[in-house]
Design a protein around this nucleic acid. Structure first.
Lengths: 238, 238
DNA sequence: CAGTGGTCTAGACCACGCA
DNA sequence: GCGTGGTCTAGACCACTGA
């Protein structure tokens, strides 16, 4: 692990254990450089990491200060960027099941081609899948993925975990995505599978996932039961 | 403007004008350093900026490459982090109006105290405000702000723009926030003011805004008409 | 093993905050 | 004007990729 990350971890621990307290000014970079027997540039890189993680802020000409809400973030490992999470209102131990409703290969429609940057002749997997937690359905997925990018999807994979398959079998990792979130009325299919009334809203999430290379690999529209799912977004200034 | 930002802008322009094309490998850092008559560290900082902006990715031992979807991002000025946006399904020229429904000062309840990190005796502004675009109501805000942090809010300010007042009059800028998004059924108040039926869902956004210092300054719950608002989230790996 | 990016240093100068 | 963070350099060494 590079030195600047190690130093960042140590300073994070000091925040956690109240060696540095909320609102407090840190020692200046020169002093920290001496303490950690390193150069000032390396200290700055460590502080930059902590800033991106939302633990402190820096004012040129003045110093670095611990944020008021730093303790909320300092618990987990240092993580730059944003946490984007889907929270289900059910305990963690509950059983998670999938039920595949449709699974085919076909050609993409216009919207799918545009979002996935593929042409008319590029075959895609298409599946509809119901996700069930503790015996209760909570979301209905409509997913499209180019066949040539994500090889070997089977109904068996869909019954287990697509992301696990992609990560562990194909060795592909992706985190970049673009999501649009809406409230909408349930479709007829939603009403059947999500066991919801015509008056129950659904949370609709339209999502495109990208590889590191910027290649789109998945386009999906997911409908969530309104009483079981909410989405959390944390936005940090960088 | 620092040199590394200038270089980043130039490279971005080269991507925009197809001097460097999608999927292409960039010249190595040493070569770029010579071209821009600078050190390799500065080139790396420029590339880091472009990586954070989602225009390219880097593989240690191999090189830097333009992302497949770089052109989508390269249009706007370089912006690290995420775009989080609220999109209204109405053209930009439309008239924007506010209607204040409630405006008082009071003490915070338990949830508000927890989110705003204040105690029982700290007075807060509370207002309910309807937002109207082109004569049509599209969202209903419930907002709480500590009085000592955001001084001088008046009904006049609420009728104009709160954020503009805070930015221009108080000189406070904030972008850090934490949002929870849900679909929910409309309340009685929603039905009246948003002009929606009992069967029309609303998009509920619960939001806490923070100052640079990590001090929470605003806690709000906003209900949006489902057919006029959607939220966009772009998540980049850093 | 050659090419390339990631890290690190010591020192310099500049820009900004603050008294 | 002093203290502080931001930028920049030239060179070094290490870690990784890929032929």
């Amino acid at each position: 692990m590079p030195k600047y990350k190690e130093i960042a971890e140590i300073i994070k621990e000091r925040i956690n254990t109240h060696v540095y307290t909320v609102d407090e000014k840190l020692p200046d970079q020169q002093t920290l450089a001496k303490e950690f027997a390193t150069s000032r540039v390396t200290i700055k890189k460590a502080l930059d990491l902590l800033r991106a993680a939302g633990l402190l802020y820096t004012i040129q000409g003045s110093g670095s200060y611990i944020k008021r809400n730093a303790l909320m973030k300092a618990q987990t490992s240092i993580q730059i960027g944003h946490n984007v999470g889907l929270t289900t209102a059910v305990q963690k131990e509950a059983q998670l099941d999938n039920k595949v409703i449709t699974f085919t290969v076909r050609f993409p429609d216009e919207k799918e081609r545009r979002h996935l940057l593929i042409d008319r002749e590029t075959p895609v997997y298409f599946y509809q899948r119901l996700r069930i937690i503790g015996g209760k359905p909570y979301s209905l997925e409509n997913t499209v993925m180019p066949v040539h990018l994500i090889k070997g999807i089977t109904e068996e994979v869909l019954n287990d975990s697509v992301y696990r398959y992609i990560r562990e079998e194909l060795g592909i990792i992706f985190k970049d995505n673009r999501q649009i979130v809406r409230a909408s009325k349930p479709t007829a299919l939603d009403q059947v599978h999500l066991d919801c009334k015509e008056t129950d809203p659904v949370l609709e999430v339209e999502k495109i996932m990208y590889l590191t290379t910027g290649t789109p690999v998945e386009y999906s529209i997911v409908h969530h039961r309104y009483d079981m799912v909410e989405m959390l977004f944390e936005n940090q200034d960088h």
